[in-house]
């Protein structure tokens, strides 16, 4: 490769800030701030889920409510392959197996459902969460006669580093998709599917593949999070909130750029953390619902979109001033 061809200035401009942030995050456990590690783990979970959700749904406009299903597959992968007692695979292997399983499930679900438009796709994906819940619950209570499972615990630091690793992978995948022709194809599908197909885009393949990739990422979070709670069962694994949260966080943060979903995820997961520790979960959901409606009505570009608009207006005003 010819090094002189690379625009170092451009490259450093793009990557400098993320690298600094990443370094700061990587050193987190050394600050001696015990709560910080678990708080940032909490942030990372939602950032990864939200960014993965946006990867597919943000670009195509197909609203997937299957996040909880893939997250739940991750939790159950950990419960089966990384149990508290008996034979246990190393966590990294469980992550890989779970990602592959979710990829496969999403691929099949996507292949049958992604020709459905609008709310049918949303309902279908949401139904998947309920279906998995009922089937696993049924198998456990009626066939195995044992409800729930115990997972081998990991330390807070281990969980944190795994999440950080998955976060980096998620960001790389997002960046890769955005900057290759597949990102362009995905956007064109969101704009007009027919036109994309008649311009040579294998619409079904692109949709199904990206849906499956985002599902694989979602499930890895589930694996890691399962090791935080000793006991898991179908109702904790397939919690519909895990489907709604990423969608709201993305809409609230704004999907126009990469930071919007992450910002939305951090803000909401922080509010959730505070209210949940105060046992005010119902108030969190109440706020959650109200803000969702308000965002759709008054802030359709999300928080980052709003800030960008204000910024542009400010810059415009400045320019007008200097010109005058």
């Amino acid at each position: 490769m010819n090094l002189s061809n690379i625009n170092w200035k451009q490259l450093s401009k793009t990557f400098a800030a993320p690298l600094v942030i990443l370094l700061a995050l990587a050193l987190m456990p050394f600050y001696g701030w015990e709560y910080g590690v678990s708080l940032f783990s909490h942030f990372l979970i939602y950032i990864i889920l939200t960014v993965s959700w946006v990867m597919f749904s943000g670009a195509t406009g197909y609203i997937s409510l299957a996040t909880a299903a893939f997250y739940g597959i991750g939790i159950y992968s950990a419960a089966l392959l990384h149990p508290a007692t008996g034979f246990s695979l190393p966590l990294i292997a469980v992550i890989i197996v779970s990602a592959a399983a979710s990829f496969l499930v999403a691929f099949i679900v996507g292949a049958i459902t992604l020709r459905l438009k609008g709310i049918y796709f949303a309902m279908f994906t949401f139904g998947l969460v309920l279906l998995l819940f009922q089937v696993i619950n049924y198998v456990e209570t009626s066939i195995l006669g044992q409800r729930g499972r115990f997972v081998a615990l990991e330390s807070n630091e281990t969980i944190y580093y795994y999440l950080l690793g998955i976060f980096v992978v998620t960001m790389i995948v997002t960046f890769f998709i955005k900057n290759t022709k597949y990102g362009l194809a995905l956007r064109s599908i969101g704009e007009n599917e027919d036109a994309a197909a008649h311009s040579g885009v294998n619409v079904t393949m692109v949709k199904v593949l990206i849906f499956a990739v985002s599902a694989a990422l979602m499930s890895t979070v589930g694996v890691v999070m399962a090791t935080k709670t000793i006991y898991v069962d179908a109702s904790t694994a397939f919690n519909p909130m895990m489907s709604f949260s990423p969608a709201l966080m993305a809409i609230f943060g704004g999907m126009a750029n990469l930071y919007g979903p992450a910002v939305g995820a951090v803000i909401f997961s922080y509010v959730q953390e505070i209210l949940q520790t105060g046992n005010l979960n119902n108030y969190y959901m109440l706020i959650f619902g109200s803000i969702l409606i308000a965002t759709i009505l008054y802030m359709p570009q999300g928080l980052m979109g709003l800030i960008q608009n204000l910024w542009n207006r400010l810059k415009g005003a400045k320019r007008a001033l200097t010109r005058g």
Partner: peptide, 12 residues
């Protein structure tokens, strides 16, 4: 980008 789609995928 509209045109690029045709070039990247159609001309393939």
């Amino acid at each position: 980008d509209n045109v690029k789609i045709g070039l990247l995928f159609g001309a393939h």
